[in-house]
Computed example of a mutant assay.
Amino acid sequence: MKLYSYWRSTTSYRVRIALNLKGLSYETSPVNLVAGEQRAPDYAALNPGKGVPTLVLGDGTVLTQSLAIIEYLDATVPEPPLLPTDPLMRARVQAAVQTIAMDIHPVNNLKVMTYLKAHMGLTADGQLDWFRHWMTEGFAAYQAMLPKGTAFSFGETPDLADICLVAQLYNAHRWGVDMSPFPRLLEIEECALSVAAFNDARPQNQPDAA
């Protein structure tokens, strides 16, 4: 398999963690988002969304969108499971996942920030305020969803919620979000990063890390 990825992309980070947890080997093909390589015609033909990640399977099948890729991996390589089989627990985990992937991430990605800067006149300080506000809002909601007394978000083993959380926390630290209201999230992050599959997927451990 080949994973088209950018080292700082949180969505790429998610897929790297999932691949590692499943014990799947893959080749990384860097796509420099800052340099605009995602808009190159050859890559845009592969991923019409002009983003990362893109996973190309051994038979040449192309998958895009991180959650779709991860759910495919979970369906085809069931162990270890990344989503609960119990319908109620599955819904709770998915709600936490969507808080990160649908509430926080879409308004904090490079496309949005580039547009706000270029067309809405957002200053550098304004961009930071924007980042921090939406992450703080989302983290408060996420933390309130969690049960007590578990090592990870919903149990003793990591799942899709933890994958999304750890990737988003990378951005939170990068952009100086005040994490003092979220001790539970930092505990989960510490636990997750002690797992090789998470640690190996960290942005700074990627071949294209600057």
Rank of each mutant, 00 (worst) to 15 (best):
A118T: 12
K111T: 13
I100K: 10
Y26H: 07
D103L: 02
Y43W: 10
A95L: 10
V97R: 12
G23I: 05
V166R: 04
F182S: 04
E37K: 05
A118D: 14
A68C: 10
G155Q: 06
V34I: 15
D42I: 05
C191D: 12
E37T: 13
Y142G: 14
S194H: 11
D129S: 15
L165G: 14
M102V: 11
V97T: 14
G149F: 02
L146W: 01
P181C: 01
W130D: 03
I70E: 02
P53N: 09
T150Q: 14
L46E: 06
E156F: 02
S194W: 05
T54I: 12
E187H: 13
V52K: 03
D103K: 03
G149M: 05
V15L: 11
P207T: 11
K148Y: 12
H173A: 14
W134F: 12
L116K: 12
N20E: 10
A40W: 01
A172C: 13
V195A: 00
S5Y: 05
L146Y: 06
N199W: 07
I17W: 00
M89H: 13
S66D: 05
A118Q: 12
M145F: 00
L82Q: 08
L185W: 05
V112Y: 04
L55R: 01
W130K: 02
W130Q: 07
A45V: 12
A45L: 14
W130F: 03
C191I: 05
Q143A: 13
Q94I: 14
V97E: 15
N32R: 14
P147D: 02
H119K: 15
V77G: 06
S66K: 02
T61G: 03
H105Q: 11
V97S: 14
T99M: 12
H133T: 15
T123E: 08
S12D: 04
I163T: 09
A91D: 05
C191H: 13
V31R: 07
V166T: 10
W175L: 04
I163W: 00
T64K: 00
I69C: 01
Q94E: 13
F152I: 11
